[in-house]
Design a protein around this nucleic acid. Sequence first.
DNA 1: TGCGTTCATGAACGAGTGTTCATCATGGTG
DNA 2: CACCATGATGAACACTCGTTCATGAACGCA
Lengths: 209, 209
Amino acid sequence: MSPRKAAALRGQDGGQDLRRHLIDTAERLIAEQGTAGLTVRAIARAAGVADGVLYNHFADKEELLAQALRAHVRTAEATLGPLPEPGTGTVRDNLRIHLDHGLALHRALLPAFAGLLAQPGVLAGFAGLAEPGGEWRDRLTGYLRAERELGRLAPDARVDAAAALIIGICHESVLSLMLRGSTPAPLPPETVDDLVTTVLDGIRPPTTA
Amino acid sequence: MSPRKAAALRGQDGGQDLRRHLIDTAERLIAEQGTAGLTVRAIARAAGVADGVLYNHFADKEELLAQALRAHVRTAEATLGPLPEPGTGTVRDNLRIHLDHGLALHRALLPAFAGLLAQPGVLAGFAGLAEPGGEWRDRLTGYLRAERELGRLAPDARVDAAAALIIGICHESVLSLMLRGSTPAPLPPETVDDLVTTVLDGIRPPTTA
DNA sequence: TGCGTTCATGAACGAGTGTTCATCATGGTG
DNA sequence: CACCATGATGAACACTCGTTCATGAACGCA
């Protein structure tokens, strides 16, 4: 890229636009092929700039990757509808919404984070980068507790177990497909219904010995 | 290592012992730190042999890794007790055994395979290398179907959903801890009981609208 | 117009990777 | 004892990685 084109990209604020352009490019590459094997030169080439331009705006590759991953998480969450409030609708429909939400989130995020799973504790190295889907997990657990307190679930309903099962389905659905090398596809609606029904029936404490 | 020591290692069968020694060493390294960042030179150094000795016994690094991963899977499975036969004991106890089995298996195998999750379809490149825990999954599904045919589960029990939930718990338990960078630890027994109870209660089709 | 600052450029560096190959010690065979 | 095939050796090769740096173009300002 010629300096003129770079300057045009940069715009009028002293280089903030190119920084943003690099983050956007890295985010796109992460969404397409994950962080594994993602190279500094590949980002620069995809952005149409020189190899070492990254170091004019970031301390190192890790800082750019952390910014791009954060942007990727925000983008994925922005495409999803709102989670239901406790006390509204039916618990069954709300569980289904949570499950659909979690499935879509994990489908979008797990491949991007797969390359970071390898080294233990690597996520901690990306300061401020939360576990993917962490907020969704917290909201699911909170939702179930709230419904129990509202009396829409049995007083001794096993909400922790129910939450663990729903979270597990999200990981299982995406991870097993990744292990097989396929692109994660949405679960069939009747399968989702079966899962929600099983969890909902099981969440109540046993009434028969 | 001197050629004399290598010859002593090799023994009397023309090099098969060193081949086995390399597989054993790679298996140990995989068990300790996974396949991610595992280098040809690191294996050779750990085995106490020269850098390029691998290529006297394997076509390339991938062939050695596939052998070592296969050995790792066999070792992990060998440390686990037998899975229950349909029609014996209680379904509850048997589900708990399956879940314990699956948890131990995923704890042992997922970290080793994490480095392979990144590139899509990479497992297919390791000819004959099955998805980790694949056999366990098949046996769990078969077990549930058999119990239903034996009449020890309701005729319309949602066995597929139950299997998916149990498999999901295994992935969730290991994967979420890996994302946090911790070493996967066993689930508390009361948590496992809660999960089994929830799945078992939920497996029966709903009796109340 | 001329100056100084900003910052993209792209070649280069050093480290690390998988892999190859000429060399040579070794043990078995005549 | 002399010879040969086996296979371990470790230096070297070609490549990629993240990162650095001297160079010079473009801009705002006087």
